[in-house]
């Protein structure tokens, strides 16, 4: 199983699409390693700089609604994975992106908008987030204090994370 948690990158916008996460011009790559420098390169978000060295320290993304919409490219979860970001927390995901995350043994956690707002309250205060996968609970800690949230993922998605991904799960079962 992958390791989950660490420093948080806040992306305060809804409808971030996979073209923004990894532009199509890099889809000619056939290794995940080659994607590494191009994470979020075309993200349209005020004040966001894809070359900010702090991005390399991020281990968790917290964002808004409909994250990962658009193209089905699994290069989007891959570019996160190769940058050691294995958790995305949002108020909603596009279907294909969400499934791609779990298929790779990564976590796409959906929380209510109110809970997302409370996570965003820790922005700019050295926030880090830990994941208790067994008990389906996250905890955020920052200069502003700490706060815990229960989450739920489907039994299937949980099993995918435990198996290490869909190929492993399906190969053992079908």
């Amino acid at each position: 199983m992958k390791t989950f948690g660490g420093k948080v990158l806040f992306l305060d916008r809804s409808d971030i699409n996979t073209d923004e996460i990894i532009p199509a011009k890099y889809l000619t790559e056939i290794s995940k390693e080659a994607l590494k420098p191009h994470m979020l390169e075309d993200l349209k978000l005020e004040g966001f700089d894809p070359r900010d060295p702090e991005l390399q320290e991020a281990r968790v993304i917290v964002t808004r609604a409909n994250f990962g919409c658009g193209s089905s490219r699994e290069h989007a979860p891959w570019v996160f994975e190769i940058n050691d970001i294995n958790v995305v927390i949002a108020s909603g995901f596009a279907r294909i992106f969400r499934q791609n995350m779990f298929n790779c043994g990564m976590l796409a956690i959906e929380l209510a908008e109110g809970a997302i707002d409370r996570l965003f309250a820790h922005r700019g205060a050295n926030a880090s987030l830990s994941v208790d996968f067994k008990n389906s609970r996250i905890e955020i800690k920052s200069d502003k204090g700490s706060e815990g949230f229960d989450y739920s993922v489907s039994g299937f998605d949980k099993a995918l994370v435990e198996a290490g991904g869909w190929v492993e799960f399906a190969d053992a079962k079908y």
Binding site: S72, R73, E74, P77, I96, Q99, N100, G165, W166, V167
Partner: peptide, 9 residues
């Protein structure tokens, strides 16, 4: 539409 892992399976 699916990702590469779904496609692989």
């Amino acid at each position: 539409g699916v990702g590469t892992t779904d496609l692989e399976v």
